[in-house]
Design a protein around this nucleic acid. Structure first.
Lengths: 235, 235
DNA sequence: TCAAAAGTGTTATAGATACACCCATGC
DNA sequence: GCATGGGTGTATCTATAACACTTTTGA
C-alpha cells in the first residue's frame, strides 16, 4: 500500500471524535462539549482531539479524549468505529481527517457534569439535528450517521442493552427501542420476541415495582450479541 | 474536536487501501498487487497508497490509487468506505493509518492485466485467507473484514448486481449470491424473491441462451438499493 | 426425443401482528 | 375494589422453504 520511500509526507493531522449516544429523559441524547478555543469557539462539538503522539493507537486516543473531555470511562460503555471523515476544508486551520467512534452509554446518574469536563452536555439528537441548529465542523453530518447506525444496530444486535444499566427490565429495554426508533412497540409482542432470543436476557430472580402494576422481572445482559431473526423497524 | 493551537503535530502518514472484490471463475476474488519495493517487497498487497497532497480528498485518493495500480476506473465499480486501520507498528517504516475502501467490481473481460499496472492480479479470497497464506501488512485482516461486509451487504441491499455486468439474468445474480455466500440457493424461490422486489430488476425484453435449456430473460439494474424484507443467509 | 435450464403453482411452516385476557402490585 | 403495568394465549397474516410441474431451448 505505501509507495516509494524518500518522499515528503503531506501534512495531514489525524484526530478522533466520539459520538456518544444515551437515552435520557425520554429522548435519544448525544454528548457534546462546548469549544473553548477557535475555530467555532463557544459552539457545541463532538468530544475528540488529535492523536497525542505518533505511537498512540486510535482506540486509545478515543478512550483518552472521552475521559478528558467528558469524564466518562471507555470501559463503561460500548465503543466502535463509525467512519472516517476527511473532506479537505472541514477544519479551517489545516487538513484534518478524523476517525469517528460511536458510543452507547447507559443513562448516567449525574449526566456528565460529574466528570472532569464541566463543559460536557447532553443534548437531544432531535434538537441537534434540527435544520436551524448548528454544531462545529461537519459534526452534524457525523451525528446524523451515528444516529442512523445506532438505529440500525438495534435491529440485528443486542446493543440496546448497552443503553441500560447493569440491571434492567423488559420495559426498560422496550423504551430504549421506542425512543431510539421513535416509534411505539407492542409491549406484549416485544416481551415475547426478546425472551425468545437465547442468551440475551439473564434473569436475576429479582423483581421491581415501578409506580403501579405488577412488578417486573429484573435481568442482566447475557452473552448473545446478535438478534436472529432481526427485529425490524416498521418500513 | 481539535485541541489547542500551536502544538507539534504527531507525524502520522495517511493512506488509502482498496479491497476490490469480484466474482470470477466461480469464485469470489480480490484484486491484489505485487509490491515492487520494501517493506514486504515481492509480496501481494491491497492496492493503495498515501495521499498525494494535503488537499486530496480520501475518495479521490482511493480512485486515483485504484486506477494507478490496477487500471480500473472508480466509475466502473461500487466503492464505499470500509473501515480505518491504524494500529501502531502495522507499517514498519513509520506510523500509518489507512482508510480502507470496499469495492464491488463486475467480472472483467481481461481480469486486470489490461491496466497500466501489469502487477495486478485476481486471487480467490479462499486462497488468500488460508491460514498458511501471507499478504503484506495487516491486509489479511482487512480482506477478512471486506469479505464479511460484502456477504452481509448482499443480505439487505441490491449490491449483488454490482458484481454483474450491465445486463444479466436472474441466474447470473443467483450465482453471485451462491459464490459470495458459499451456499446453494433454490433457483425457483430465488427467482420469485428477486422479482418481488420493486425496482431491483428492469427487463430489457431480450433473452439469452446459455448452453442448454430455456433462454433466460435479460435484466438491467433498477433504482432500488435496499432489499426489503432482507434475504438472509442460512443461520 | 431427451436433457437441461427457466419459470410458475402449491402446500407447509416460521415468524410477525393484533389483541383478548389473566396476574400482581399500589392506592 | 380498581387502576396500572407485567406477562400469557391465540388467531391471523406474511414470508420463506420445499418441491411438483410446465415451458422452451440445444443436441
Amino acid at each position: 500500500m505505501p509507495d516509494d520511500e524518500g518522499w515528503t509526507l503531506p501534512e495531514v493531522a489525524v484526530a478522533v471524535d466520539l459520538a456518544v449516544l444515551t437515552v435520557h429523559d425520554g429522548a435519544l441524547q448525544i454528548m457534546l462539549v462546548k469549544r473553548g478555543i477557535p475555530p467555532y469557539e463557544g459552539m457545541l462539538a463532538l468530544p475528540g482531539g488529535f492523536l497525542a503522539s505518533t505511537e498512540e493507537d486510535l482506540d486509545v486516543a478515543a478512550a483518552r479524549e472521552l475521559e478528558e473531555e467528558t469524564g466518562l470511562h471507555a470501559k463503561d460503555l460500548h465503543l466502535e468505529q463509525l467512519r472516517t471523515y476527511g473532506t479537505p476544508g472541514r477544519d479551517p486551520r489545516r487538513r484534518v481527517i478524523t476517525v469517528c467512534y460511536l458510543g452507547f452509554s447507559p443513562n448516567l446518574p449525574e449526566p456528565a457534569a460529574g466528570g472532569d469536563a464541566s463543559e460536557a452536555v447532553l443534548m437531544p439528537v432531535d434538537k441537534v439535528l434540527r435544520p436551524r441548529a448548528t454544531v462545529a465542523f461537519d459534526h452534524k453530518k457525523i451525528i446524523t450517521d451515528a444516529v442512523e447506525r445506532a438505529r440500525s444496530k438495534l435491529e440485528y444486535t443486542t446493543l440496546a442493552a448497552a443503553f441500560c444499566g447493569p440491571e434492567f427490565t423488559v420495559t426498560d429495554l422496550r423504551e430504549v427501542y421506542e425512543i431510539v426508533w421513535g416509534e411505539t412497540l407492542d409491549p406484549r409482542n416485544f416481551h415475547r420476541k426478546i425472551m425468545s432470543v437465547p442468551g440475551f436476557l439473564v434473569p436475576t430472580g429479582e423483581r421491581v415495582s415501578r409506580q403501579a402494576g405488577r412488578p417486573a422481572a429484573v435481568f442482566r445482559r447475557g452473552p448473545a450479541t446478535i438478534l436472529h431473526p432481526a427485529m425490524l423497524r416498521s418500513p
